[in-house]
Amino acid sequence: MIAEAFKFPEINSILRWQDLFTSFNKIALIAVLAAVIGSTIFILAGRKDAAVAPKGVRNLAETSVEFIENGIVMQTMGKDGMGWTPFLLSLFLFIYLCNVPGIIPFLQMPATARMAIPMFFALLVWVIYNGVGIKHQGIGGYLKSTLFPPGVPVFLYILVTPIEFISNILVRPFSLMVRLFANMLAGHILLVTFALLTQSLFTAETQKFLLKPMAVLPLFMLIFLTAFEVLVAFLQAYIFTILTAVYIGGSAHPEH
């Protein structure tokens, strides 16, 4: 029976990893690798001659810099936000390099499918955009512009202010965190499901001639989903970064 052959494993067994050594598991390994790979790209890019047309690693680094500048900073914060480029660039690269191991053989685990890293980033972004707002407008001005949006009749503030507080102060970091985490977790679970389905059909003990060829179907789905995860890994890093930029830009210049 297929129902017996295909049994989805306990969720923790596809998400939690044993320590490679004390308090250092695969997630930590991926995070450290992301930092090392990101730094290596920029170290190698910095060594090359800047005067000639960029090639290879330098081209990659410059493309990412221009992507952040033109695709994210200019679209959301304008020229004033150029100082945020290095932070947004490292955020984008780090998240992307944490997402991508979900489809790399032998790693096969997006580090962002665990709550720790998205939570850290969401808290960091929360601290940063609130800090920027307070720095630019003062604590009173910031609270006024976030909690009491202009152009609302005074008696409506009873309704508007709690909503604004919840949406700006609580929901933003929460949705930022859950979006990244849940997208990567969903992708990981889908990949696991179709990989297990392929395997269990291919190694079926009964009705071999019917079941074994059918393993092709989940295999195609697996290939398609792997390609889809390439896109998702990029898109989630992009969305996290652009939302960060929007929040920072919004607290730096509340009129936008």
Binding site: N25, A31, A35, A116, I117, M119
Partner: peptide
């Protein structure tokens, strides 16, 4: 499955801060 682990948080945060 969604409870963050302290060691992952520490390693992730540490490596990101160094990288940034």
């Amino acid at each position: 499955p969604i409870v963050p682990e302290v060691k992952e948080l520490a390693w992730g945060a540490g490596s990101f801060i160094v990288f940034a």
